[in-house]
Design a protein around this nucleic acid. Sequence first.
DNA 1: ATGAAAGCGCTAACAT
DNA 2: ATGTTAGCGCTTTCAT
Lengths: 328, 328
Amino acid sequence: MKVTMEDVAREAGVSRSLVSLAFRGAYGVNEATRDHILAVAGRMNYQPNSAAATLASRGTSTLGVFLLDLHNELFADVHDGIREVAGPAGRELLLTVGSIGGNLDRPALDLLVRARVDVVIAAGLLLSDDELAPYRRSLKLVSVMREVPEADNVLSDNVLGAGLAIDHLLGLGHRRIVHLASPRSDGYGGRREGYMRAMKQAGAKPRVVVSDYSRTEAAKAIAPVLDGAAPPTAIFAHNDQTALGVLDALHLRNLRVPEDVSVVGYDNTSASRPPGIALTTVDVHAGRLGRLAAEAAIARAADPAADPHEVRTTPSLVVRGTTAAPPR
Amino acid sequence: MKVTMEDVAREAGVSRSLVSLAFRGAYGVNEATRDHILAVAGRMNYQPNSAAATLASRGTSTLGVFLLDLHNELFADVHDGIREVAGPAGRELLLTVGSIGGNLDRPALDLLVRARVDVVIAAGLLLSDDELAPYRRSLKLVSVMREVPEADNVLSDNVLGAGLAIDHLLGLGHRRIVHLASPRSDGYGGRREGYMRAMKQAGAKPRVVVSDYSRTEAAKAIAPVLDGAAPPTAIFAHNDQTALGVLDALHLRNLRVPEDVSVVGYDNTSASRPPGIALTTVDVHAGRLGRLAAEAAIARAADPAADPHEVRTTPSLVVRGTTAAPPR
DNA sequence: ATGAAAGCGCTAACAT
DNA sequence: ATGTTAGCGCTTTCAT
């Protein structure tokens, strides 16, 4: 049924090793022989068994990629960046997906570990530092957007990014700025911290509400503050997705944006761009993060013993249509 | 360095086979022994090598998933559906991603083949029937949204869906309806065909322009027809993404939607839902497609020899804010 | 209930 | 340039 390398070798009248070498394009194989082997293999529809290859060679050249959530285009952008450098480097990508709640992180990582991928690039890990610690032994990890102790980290400066957003709002004249934050979890405090700092520095009173990463939850979470006393004139959301949830809630109440309320998102995903949305947001340059992560992963593969690598990139503010001076 | 099953067996004072059985929760292992083995393994941080397992057992229980494009949330919805049934069935998911141009389909599928996944669920394959044919021998394939000869197919009735959209437009009084179609490729003709049929049946003159699947390309492709003589009063796009591109182009020209031009998308991805967009679209019920595909995959794994399975689901029209009577 | 032994299909020295 | 020979770390009969 399944064609093995042995079958190809017999058919081509050569030894197994030669077939193996030919397939990996190694030097030291006569060109004619190689072509012949490849032709025979092609005719027989031979597909190498990578389980056997992995076992025999104790590893793969495949990169594992963990993405938190397929519904957030941020991760698609990161993936594009990874692929941009992994492809030319001859590295293939095997993905695994987590979930907004974080409860699928573990099985997703475990699957990658068992698949014996060379290095794992994880974007948006939600596991705590403690839960991640055991993986140090079984995994070469490049973490994107979330700082993991002792691992390679590719980060964006969230404190700075949040500061950019708040300063923009402050400059427009806002004082009652609410932050719709993500649930507390290790490695994700930056945006909230940047918000707190900028507010305090300006002598404005910070107010934080928490919601998970989904758009609908965000709309629910912001509802009470919109309906309560002294509603904010501006809302700084944890990311674009939750900002869209805020927009939904605002729309439902016939509150105009930006005339009545200003909204700032975070990530600059394409969901923020449409003319009808035109969300002011902070660009993390996700593609660049992906490229840097792939570079870090390849470097790590080449030198497993090197010191942990860390880059922190600088985000930028993208002002669009959802921010303006507060109503007077 | 790496802990093997042998190490665990030695440490636990049992044989390798027993460790193997314990790990797979097989019957016939004394409960106390099993607990002991698992405890020892846990302490040693043992991670089974699935390459070896795959090799020895000639297969995996993992499902491979191919998704055409991470930027189109349709695929995230399909993925959710797959996971919804695969999870409870104890099947893990390994993903691979193609690209809008279709040129990454092959490497992505090959990677899955070599990983020896049990069955591959492919959503949005762009390869031609001919290019797909060889995979018949190396792969159990469940194709979603694209009919592949001899494979298991989980489809949505695109002819019907397009008819729904056009009939809606026709009912509103539109006659000059342009279809922004996808490039011709096997298995994707349904929407165009449904458009042609509905137009002809109403005695309206069809007009088709083609663009690839990206938003920006769609905006470019529709530009000349907007700027040309006798511009359409309605545009039926191949999917939501390209419909958004159309919206962009319209916005750029200060054309109002739906007062000046009506727009209908396809897929009902979440990108079509925001209040500011409110795109009228055709819902393919992507989650359901995913669930059906996972069921088909599991059935196929259980009985590789069964006759090809085919389901064709019925889409529905979601009328929102981008369609209205044409200007008079 | 547990153990021994034979592969699974490759790669990696090492020969020739 | 090509062939030989050990494994890689598991699962799977088959014994016990």
